[in-house]
Amino acid sequence: MTKHKILLIIGGGIAAYKALELIRRAQDRGYEVTVIMTKAAEQFVTPLSVSTLAKGKLYANLFDPHEEMDVGHIRLSRQADIVVIAPATADLMAKMAHGLADDLATATLLANDRPVLIAPGMNPKMWDHPAAKRNRAQLAEDGVHFVGPTSGEMAEANEAGTGRMAEPAAILDAVDGLLRPSQHGLLSGKHVLITAGPTHEPIDPVRYIANRSSGKQGYAIAAAAHAAGAEVTLVTGPVHLNAPEGVEVVAVETARQMKQAVVDALPADIAIMCAAVADWRTASAADQKQKKDGSGTPPVLELTENPDILHHVAREADPRPALVIGFAAETDHLIEHATAKRLRKGCDWLVANDVSQEGVMGGDTNSVHLIRDQGIDAWPKADKQAVANRLVSEIIQHFQ
């Protein structure tokens, strides 16, 4: 396997001590690691410790006359395959969001054209502050990938909540997902069929039944599968997303249209049913807009079940895809309900997530469990592209 290069930027937070383990674990996975430490990071871990583990590949000073003779802040980013920031402090994220470049770390980031993965680490109050929310929204829009933070006890006494930096293994899982599937083309020759987004079930010409799905996870999976060399057909409900490059997109509105588009796209080697299909539709949509009549009594909507697309693909399609993956969005008893759904639908794998958590449906991050015959794997919270890349990595391993 190609020896990929990580440029690790260590921010100035208490979680900086985890960067030492991150360097060692990355090397164990075959990565070459170069490190930039911020001045604040030196207050938490010593440059000697970091330099020893990184085999001397440590940089800290933007104005070092020796390193900057060949414009070191440009060279460092160009030599890397990915830039990882761990911990990404509130201060460092704010500088990134606003394009500041007053030290080696931020100047390198501004000159960088490689993927960037950040592992935030900060106090929960800081993470929830409106300014921090604005900054991470800007970073996500700029294409920055996230892993974590997780919830738990903080270094400060009697402080707990979301803000703990993801563990080194989880960070490296995200790095693997971002780099390795996209560079090996191991799904070449495979046809991957993916559904994404919500469905809109009309009540009348104006109103419809829908859900909060943004389609981001399905679109991310389509992009990752294409990057891995697959021929991808993406059947999508109504979303506000740009079509992934190189992917055949079939746009639909209702569940019945989505099922027909899926049937038309078969056969496929792999089916990933990520769409949040409405369970019900009105038995008969009105031809005219339904108005208030002044009585205070709303109209009665008679509902009927929509077709079960996942069940059809897993149990009725002929030929059946070699690997069928379903999704389950649950609000309670996640594992119990998702495990039962996998058996009921007949899919090989099921990806389950708890959508009662704020920011999952419509947001940029996800925390999922992959349920298979072999067991249940809990994945750490990460941005949806990192989740998609990891899922594609699992698919590649399945077919090897």
Rank of each mutant, 00 (worst) to 15 (best):
K5W: 07
I9V: 15
I14M: 04
Y17A: 14
A26K: 03
Y31T: 01
Y31K: 07
I36F: 01
A40N: 11
A41N: 05
A41T: 08
E42D: 03
Q43T: 13
L53Q: 11
A54H: 09
A60W: 01
A60S: 12
F63T: 09
F63Q: 06
D64H: 01
D64R: 09
H66A: 06
E67K: 04
D70E: 15
G72A: 07
D81V: 03
V83A: 14
D91P: 05
L92M: 13
M93A: 11
M93L: 12
A97I: 07
D102C: 06
D103E: 12
L109T: 11
L110P: 02
N112A: 15
V116L: 15
A119P: 10
P130F: 00
A132F: 02
R134S: 13
N135T: 03
Q138V: 08
E141M: 03
V144Q: 08
G152D: 06
E153A: 13
A157L: 03
M165E: 08
E167Q: 15
P168R: 07
P168G: 13
I171L: 03
D173M: 15
I194S: 12
I194R: 09
A196D: 11
G197I: 12
E201F: 07
D204F: 13
V206I: 15
V206E: 06
I209E: 13
N211W: 12
R212A: 14
G215V: 11
G218C: 11
A220H: 12
A222V: 09
H226K: 15
A227Y: 04
G229F: 02
G229R: 10
V232C: 04
T236H: 04
H240I: 00
P244N: 12
E245V: 14
G246H: 00
V247D: 14
M258L: 14
A261H: 02
A261W: 07
V262P: 13
A265K: 08
P267Q: 14
V277N: 11
A278F: 04
A278H: 07
A283C: 02
A283Q: 08
A285P: 13
Q288W: 09
K289L: 11
Q290D: 00
E305C: 04
P307F: 01
H312A: 13
R315W: 02
R315D: 02
D318W: 00
P319A: 07
A322M: 06
A322Y: 00
L323E: 06
L323G: 08
G326Y: 00
A328D: 12
E330T: 13
H333V: 05
L334F: 00
R342A: 09
K345P: 08
G346L: 08
C347E: 14
L350Y: 10
L350C: 10
D354R: 01
E358Y: 05
G359H: 00
G359T: 02
G359W: 06
M361A: 15
D364N: 14
S367K: 11
L370N: 04
P380I: 03
K381R: 15
A382L: 07
A386D: 04
V387W: 00
N389M: 05
L391R: 09
F399R: 02
